[in-house]
Computed example of a mutant assay.
Amino acid sequence: MHALIVTAHPRPPSLTHAVARRLADGVEDAGHTAELADLAREGFDPRFTERDIARFQQRAPAEADVRAEQTRIDRADALALVYPVYWWSMPGLLKGWIDRVFSQGWAYEEREGRDERRLGHLAVHLLAIGGADMRTYARHGYFGAMRTQIDHGIFEYCGARVITSELLVPAAGEDARRHLDTAFDLGRTLFRSGPQSGVADAA
Rank of each mutant, 00 (worst) to 15 (best):
E156V: 03
R192F: 12
L168A: 04
Y83I: 10
H152W: 15
P46T: 01
E112G: 11
A128G: 13
E42C: 11
D99C: 00
V85D: 02
S89K: 05
R21P: 01
G173A: 04
S14E: 06
A37S: 15
V199W: 11
A8K: 07
V66P: 00
G130C: 03
T136N: 10
R41K: 12
A132F: 00
I5V: 15
D77N: 08
L127H: 12
H121G: 09
L167P: 05
R192I: 06
G153V: 08
A37M: 10
A8Q: 14
M146T: 07
E116I: 13
D175A: 15
G120W: 02
W87P: 01
T49G: 01
A54Q: 04
A68F: 04
L39S: 07
Q104Y: 09
H2F: 12
D151R: 07
K95N: 08
H2N: 15
G120D: 00
L94E: 02
F143Y: 14
I154M: 07
A202R: 12
H2G: 09
A80N: 09
P61F: 02
T182M: 12
R67L: 13
H125A: 14
M90L: 15
E50Q: 05
T33K: 13
R177L: 08
G26N: 01
A172G: 08
R135G: 11
W97P: 03
M90T: 11
M90I: 13
R22P: 00
R59P: 00
T182N: 15
V124N: 02
A60T: 01
G141C: 01
P12V: 13
E156M: 05
A37Q: 14
L4E: 08
E166V: 12
E112Y: 10
A203K: 13
G43T: 14
L122M: 02
A60N: 00
G173R: 05
R41F: 11
R177F: 08
D77V: 04
A3H: 06
M1I: 11
M1L: 14
G105I: 00
W88Y: 14
C158T: 10
D38S: 09
D52C: 01
L122E: 00
V124Y: 04
A76W: 08
D185E: 15
I53G: 01
R75V: 07
G43N: 10
D29Q: 13
M146P: 05
I98Q: 03
A3D: 05
V124M: 02
L180E: 07
V82F: 06
H140V: 07
T7P: 07
Q70T: 01
M134K: 09
P10I: 03
G159K: 01
A68D: 05
R55K: 02
A18R: 15
R111A: 14
F44S: 05
A60Q: 02
Q104L: 09
R21K: 11
R192Y: 06
Q58F: 01
H152A: 15
F184S: 05
I150R: 05
A200Q: 12
D65G: 03
T136F: 08
A24W: 02
C158Q: 06
G198D: 09
R75G: 12
G131C: 00
A64V: 03
E156C: 02
